[in-house]
Amino acid sequence: MKVKNQLKMQLQAKSANESFARASIGAFVAQLDPTIEEISDIKTAVSEAVTNCIIHAYKNFSGEIYITVKIFENNKVKIVIRDKGCGIDDVNKAMQPLYTTGGEERAGLGFAVMQSFCDKIRVISKIGKGTTVTLFKEIKSK
């Protein structure tokens, strides 16, 4: 499928950038005329993925988050959120609802939220190299 539009951005892994990341991606996807619910789904899933980079991937050192958003001609959106952080030892375990290494104040629901609010997600990770989370979402035409 042909790419209709594309956004690339690179952010410092700072918590102050969480709101910027989800708001700017939400604004970019708005050109597809999504429903409020669809925009909210995307913003929530992006917020989870970006927060994971900040809390987990770059827990011990600072780094950058690389985001690519592609809009395809069939109204499908693909969002790739990549870090060069510590990587995830066991992706299946990390994706289990309520599993967290983030301490008491984290619910362990980041991946569950991404899975629930997107059509499909893909997680590829390598220890010491980083993690790539890909979110797929179709915007149904109104």
Partner: peptide, 13 residues
């Protein structure tokens, strides 16, 4: 106007 799973951690705590 917006809440992600960080809000769940906040409520649970």
């Amino acid at each position: 106007t917006f809440m992600d799973s960080s809000g769940i951690g906040l409520i649970m705590g």
